[in-house]
Every structure is written in C-alpha cells, then in structure tokens.
Nucleic acid binder design. Structure first.
Lengths: 148, 148
DNA sequence: TTTAAAACCGAGTAATTTACTCGGCTTTCT
DNA sequence: AGAAAGCCGAGTAAATTACTCGGTTTTAAA
C-alpha cells in the first residue's frame, strides 16, 4: 500500500509551487533543485498535473508553472489521484468504473475495500496546499524557537 | 496505492475460515476451492498468517487451519499488516522504525503521510471478521428476499 | 502398518511495474 | 539570434509481484 514516487514527488512539487509562487512562473529546474528531485522525471509529473488541470504552464524563456487555483482550493487528493489514479485499494472499487464482477452485489470483501477507499479519500481531500503552508510556518516558528 | 494479492487473498481466506469454522480444521484445498485461489499460493499466505499468530495449523491427514482467536478479536488490519507490512503510504512513516531522514522533525509532507497512515489503520482496525460475517448474513438475507 | 491427505519449506521464474533517462522539438523572452 | 524554458515519445535497468514446483514431514484412517 505504498504510494509511488509519482504521488510523493507530486505533492512535494505542488507544495513547493504553492510556497514559492509569486506572479512569475516557477521553473522545473528550481523546484527540482529545492526539493532534490530529478529534473527530467519531475517534468513528466508536471505534465500529468497540467493535464489534470492543477497547474498551468508558461512556455519559453523565463517560463515555468503556476497553480491553476488558490492553495486552499487544491487538495492532496487532487494531486495524488491525478498522478496515481484512484486511491481504491483494489481495482473492483475504482470510482466510476463499473466492475465486471457479477458477485459484486453480494461481495463482503468489497464492502471492506470501499470503506478503506472512502477513508483514504476523506483524509487526502481534507488537506489543502494552504493547510500544508500553515503547517510549514508553524514548524518553522517552533524550529526558530528551539534554536534559541 | 493498491493492495497486493497477498492482502486481498489473505482477507478472503480468513473470512472463509471464520465462516466455515467448526471444531474441525479447514484445509487449504477447501479454502482455495471456495474462494477460487491457487492452492500453492494460498499455502504461502497461510504460512505468513501462522507466523503472525492469527491462525493455528493442524498437520497430517484431516489437518488444516483454525483461527487463533474468536472472529470478533481478529481485524482486517491484523490480516493485511501481517501479509503486507505497515499501511504507511511511504517508508519514512512506518511505525516503530526510526527514520533516517534528519529533516523529519520539520517535514511538512511527513505530516500528510502520517495522517493517511493513521486513517487507514483506523478503518482496517475497526473491521473484525465478525463484522464481515454479519455483513455476509445481511447480504444473503436481502439476496434471498430479492429472489422471491 | 501402509497409505494418503495434509501442512511445511526453499528455490526459481515470467510478467509487470517503477523510476527513471535521453534526444530532439517547440515556444518565447531578451 | 540565442538561450531558457516547456513538450513529447521512446527506451531501459532494477525491483516487485504473483505465482509454480519439488520435495519433506506429520498424522489420521483403512
């Protein structure tokens, strides 16, 4: 049940974008540097995020990426699902996909998988980039205090 | 974030065991038949469940497996974790494993992973084999009604 | 006491997935 | 014109998954 690097790096990158956003777009290079990711790989992920409509790209020199919406409107769930697909723990409970299992209606384990899926969706959809920014500020404040 | 077949088959097998348990042990062969699983593969999984202490084995002819505890004491979480390991979405938040990431204390994404992990644990630990048996009975009752 | 039914065990393996890299093309600012 | 960026498709080594197989040991029953 591990997330792949796509989801992990994707969340990191989007957080970085949220934290470092201004009116100028942010380049893959700078995100990759700050977050310690491979540029070429991150490029793939950004393509996915763009196709999902979570970021907008600006081509050409001085180009880069910007969030499509404000940080409090983008959730961790949006990010992970756009890069990894459904959070369903098994294929037969992927949302909006009719299952080809004819026993589905009377399947007990199916109920279990649905509950797991729903609970994961609930957490990831409840965490926005804004929440992460606030956590970040809190942690840094405390860090500064500790280092006195 | 899919479960592997180990976890899926494991839950199925344990449910089967709970449902078909009497004073006689239940053989791998019969579980595999009812659940449509490969005998040889299921054998591996049962070994894992035995090592985790969830089932006890009876060797020799007429042997098989029995639950180590009553169905209301065994959770889906126990089963999945014993076959797949921690439900942590990333390695750095596996329970009882100190992380080698020195930024851990100030890591924002880490907080996200912890929340996901905790929420998954909470659901899977809240579902017992007894719950599944009751779901099964409910579904079958309704099925019988529908088929009138 | 033989036989057969079962669990136990370790090793091997094909297929799939993951986590990338690479090279070239296009766009656009300076 | 040149450089800095994004865009795109293909390729690949390593890891993981989902198994299988062959043999050993144990034990109930005929």
């Amino acid at each position: 049940m591990r997330l792949s690097t796509r989801g992990r790096y994707g969340v990191k990158a989007m957080f970085d974008l949220a934290l470092n956003s201004s009116d100028e777009p942010v380049s893959i290079k700078s995100i990759a540097e700050r977050q310690g990711l491979s540029e070429a790989y991150l490029e793939q992920l950004m393509a996915g995020l763009r196709k999902a409509g979570l970021v907008k790209s600006v081509r050409g020199a001085q180009g880069g990426y910007v969030l499509s919406d404000s940080p409090d409107k983008i959730t961790v769930g949006d990010i992970i699902r756009s890069l990894e697909g459904s959070m369903a723990p098994v294929d037969c409970v992927i949302e909006d996909e009719e299952t080809n299992c004819e026993k589905a209606e009377y399947c007990v384990t199916r109920l279990v998988w649905e509950r797991i899926r729903d609970s994961i969706n609930q957490v990831v959809d409840s965490i926005t980039l804004q929440d992460m920014i606030e956590d970040y500020k809190r942690l840094h404040q405390r860090k500064a205090k500790n280092e006195d």
